[in-house]
Nucleic acid binder design. Structure first.
Length: 827
RNA sequence: GGGUCCGUGGUCUAGGGGUUAUGACGUCGCUCUUACAAAGCGAAGAUCGCAGGUUCAAUUCCUGCCGGACCCA
């Protein structure tokens, strides 16, 4: 017996960090994890969610990413050629806000080019920090080939796809009511609207019909009276039958429009809301939009692009919406037109990014047609497998609710530009050639651009030859919605345009892993793009995980004070530092959670073992440590124990094996089969559970105890079995805890488990299949061992003491010798 | 207000029409047995949210209710 080759007494976060540092600095890193598109192996491309760098990374997202890494590593382990790209999503309003906040200046006070430079400098520092966290949690991405969604290369793809869809008529421009954020000055999509509770005044306003009757209309938005197109009551409302068809005067002064409207009926009116009479304005809300459309009415634009009242509103014109509401109320009060004001809580739609109340405004914008292809989308989506299957529902629910096309143009700056120029008379447009990134607001069309008829999309010819007929061309100033860029990610990583040969065999992309909160945006828009462009499903597999919640099951948020920083968990235990988290608990009281050591390996193990994919998961650092750190200790010590016995030269061909060795190999073979199936099935939970229960349960508790005396005696069969099992456990476990298994496997077997590209299998020559009956003895064997342990406990004697009067059951006769020595049985 | 999902020992969790319902943590007891006390072994602990229904049989299927989460109007 030699000294253990593994010198550390136990697994530690410091050791983990040391191994990580070696790993990432090692030249072998890129050999290990790079992607070879020409490989003969099955190609497996992961459409990693490109994170948005905005300071700290949400711990729930880090947990999700660590599981995406488990998928990447497990697919490599079972022999696939894996592309696990590292992308960073950097377009969008977030970075614009950050810059505005940092500099204290609004975007529009800058020169456009200057503002873009500040944005790209600012986002770079966040990008670095994010990459560090990604490495710290062990993501085996291809960092050398990092892609940024704001790079010319990526934006060129977005623009090329836009041009393609524009030519086909799948992208159109139109004047439509749009959801608009007046504070940030941009259109937003349905998917970007959030609802918040806030107090508003509900006013009962007295209107007068032209024949003198007073009616009461309840509204929260008196400033919108100037945009009123019609007053409606419910068709079955007995109270108001006599009003139908009459004309009613607007209670406020207006300009440039009639000062009266008609009273009609509409089934959408809620009879029990307020007075049951509703004014329909262009546009107070989505219902107004549909009534206007239904009745074919001309809208009255009451709010301009700056969020100010238009001249239509007479005395209110030029006021902000908020001020106009106060002023309108005051005017009505002066006229004695307000019957009552009640303050009540109401849901207000606001923009997700800016948190500003949104308005609905008529604007000319670019749209991706979607309402017309929803059925086909459904069909295509049915060809993708969802993991878990039930989360398919999130997508279906969203698709069922889609009623308008997707507005993709934004009046912002740090985004991909809409790649189009207009001729002087606006009848023709110029679009850039394939693969070219353009900025029409400051550039002329590049060589190879094409001229199209604006309405018919007929190609008229080259820009160069038609230049003179266009007059002074004007570049489009608008940009894309960020999702217009990120929804190309699967195409980009699968080689669309840039690697045609790869794309041919790699599309639909192998897997889209993501959180359920962005099903309606990222997933939906990606599927829409793939369908419009290629009439194919975007993915083979769609892995939709739940959200990371606080320890009591609530969403983590700044306002609740229940957030947990990812780095604090990953660094917990490093350099002797412990972790402590003050969190507002379920009862509103502050709770302090404490942990001594977690680190990335324990964190990953926790996420892999603790809940099935797709469910929301509670993040409690205290629990992560108590439940899973011991598992690492246990497996570490099994390996350390093994390391004191010399590793046989030949671990492929077994020596003559003893029955108990064949038994454990049969058990292990069964575990490996289960794990292999689970990995193939992208089932992290079951893989993790199987490995964990075998390697912390039956293997050390039963087989190891039974085999100790043989091991110390230098028995070849026992030593071979020990090392073969430990080596293969490490391989099977490597996707979950790569650094842990890398360290142990290189120390013991001079080959890192992270380099294994074929899932381990117990050789047939071990006789596992012939002696399948051995597995049936497992229950009886463990029960026998338990009985002996219990008997010794009842007698109050130590486990090593002799015990008599216990005989080995007949079924276990093959193990008799081993069991006698294990328990020190005497007759 | 509508939709989706969820509700299993003190806590977290697996499972699923039918023998004693999985595992982990915690609790209690024992043990420093030549890998492991940052561990091991053993024990106690659940009428599987509530009420109906379907069935020979329901914790599992159906309906309603209650509670939670998320999404939408």
């Amino acid at each position: 017996m030699a000294e253990p080759k593994i010198s550390d007494k136990r697994w530690s976060v410091d050791l983990e960090k040391k191994i990580q540092a070696d790993h990432f600095s090692n030249d072998k890193y890129s050999d290990r994890y790079k992607f070879d598109p020409t490989s003969d192996r099955e190609i497996f491309i992961i459409d990693t969610p490109p994170p948005y760098p905005s300071g700290t990374w949400h711990i729930g997202a880090v947990a999700q990413y660590s599981m995406i890494d488990v998928i990447a590593r497990s697919q490599r382990l079972i022999g696939k050629e894996v592309r696990f790209p590292w992308g960073v999503d950097r377009n969008g309003i977030n970075i614009e806000f950050t810059v505005e906040k940092k500099t204290g200046r609004k975007m529009r006070t800058y020169d456009r080019a200057e503002f873009l430079d500040i944005c790209s400098d600012t986002i770079e520092s966040y990008t670095q920090a994010m990459r560090q966290t990604a490495k710290r949690v062990g993501l085996s991405c291809d960092y050398e080939n990092e892609y940024l969604t704001d790079s010319p290369e990526y934006r060129a793809i977005s623009q090329t796809i836009f041009v393609e869809l524009f030519k086909r008529g799948d992208i159109i421009e139109d004047l439509r009511p749009n959801i608009y954020d007046p504070v940030e000055g941009t259109t937003i999509a349905e998917a970007e609207v959030q609802r918040i509770q806030r107090m508003t005044n509900l006013c009962d306003v007295v209107w007068k019909t032209q024949d003198g009757e007073e009616i009461v209309i309840t509204t929260t938005r008196p400033e919108m009276i100037c945009a009123c197109g019609v007053v409606v009551v419910h068709p079955e409302d007995e109270r108001y039958m006599h009003l139908i068809g009459k004309t009613v005067d607007l209670p406020l002064t207006v300009s440039n429009r009639d000062s009266f409207v008609q009273i009609q009926t509409h089934p959408s009116v809620k009879m029990d809301f307020g007075s049951g009479i509703l004014m329909v304005c262009s546009y107070g809300d989505q219902n107004d939009v549909s009534i206007f459309r239904e009745l074919g009415m001309r809208p009255f634009p009451a709010i301009d692009l700056d969020g100010k009242m238009t001249s239509l509103s007479g005395p209110l014109s030029g006021l902000s919406v908020e001020d106009a509401r106060v002023e309108a109320t005051r005017l009505l009060q002066n006229e004695g037109r307000i019957k009552s004001i009640e303050e009540r809580e109401q849901e207000v739609p606001v923009s997700e990014r800016g948190g500003n109340p949104i308005e609905i405004i008529l604007l000319k914008e670019w749209y991706v047609k979607q309402t017309s292809v929803l059925d086909r989308l459904s069909e295509l989506t049915n060809q993708s497998r969802f993991i878990p299957e039930r989360n398919r529902q999130f997508l279906h629910d969203w698709m069922d609710g889609i009623s308008i096309d997707w507005p993709i143009s934004r009046r912002r700056w740090y985004h991909t530009e809409v790649p189009i120029w207009y001729s002087e008379d606006r009848s023709m447009v110029v679009v850039p050639p394939k693969g070219c990134y353009v900025q029409p607001w400051r550039e002329s069309p590049p060589t190879g651009s094409q001229v199209l008829e604006r309405d018919s999309k007929k190609i008229l010819g080259d820009f160069e030859s038609l230049r003179d007929q266009l007059g002074d061309i004007v570049g489009e100033e608008k940009v894309f919605d960020t999702w217009m860029d990120s929804s190309n990610s699967n195409l980009f990583v699968s080689g669309y345009l840039n690697e045609p040969e790869l794309f041919e065999k790699a599309f639909p992309t192998s897997i889209r892993p993501q959180g359920k909160e962005i099903v309606r945006t990222w997933l939906y828009y990606t599927i829409l793009k793939s369908a419009l462009l290629l009439d194919k499903p975007g993915f083979q597999n769609i892995w939709v995980d739940g959200l990371g919640m606080d320890p009591w099951g609530r969403k983590m948020s700044k306002s609740l004070g229940n957030g947990i920083d990812a780095d604090s968990v990953l660094e917990c235990g490093a350099g002797g530092r412990t972790g402590s988290w003050k969190i507002r608990g379920a009862d509103g009281k502050q709770v302090t959670l404490k942990a001594n050591k977690i680190g990335s390996e324990c964190f990953r193990l926790w996420k892999a073992c603790d809940a099935q994919v797709g469910d929301d998961f509670h993040i409690n650092p205290e629990e992560i440590e108590t439940k899973y750190y011991g598992v690492l200790t246990k497996i570490f010590n099994v390996a350390r124990f093994a390391s004191q016995f010399d590793t046989p030269d030949d671990l492929e061909n077994p020596p003559e094996l003893s029955p108990e060795d064949v038994w454990i190999l049969a058990e292990f073979d069964h575990t490996l089969t289960t794990v292999h199936m689970a990995w193939s099935d992208i089932d992290i939970y079951n893989a993790a559970q199987s490995i964990k229960s075998f390697s912390t349960g039956i293997f050390p508790s039963h087989w190891l105890e039974m085999s100790k005396s043989r091991l110390y005696g230098g028995d070849g069969s026992a030593t071979w079995t020990l090392h073969r099992v430990v080596r293969d456990i490490l391989s099977a476990f490597t996707p979950i805890c790569p650094f842990f298994t890398h360290y142990l496997s290189t120390t013991l077997y001079s080959q890192s488990s992270v380099d294994i590209r074929e899932f381990p299998k117990i050789p047939d020559s071990c006789g596992v299949s012939e002696f399948d009956g051995f597995r049936e003895l497992t229950a009886e064997l463990t029960e026998f061992n338990s009985n002996v342990w219990k008997a010794k406990k009842d007698l109050g004697i130590s486990l090593k003491s002799e015990i008599d009067g216990i005989s080995v059951p007949i079924n276990l006769a093959v193990f008799e010798q081993a069991l006698r020595e294990m328990h020190n049985l005497v007759q």
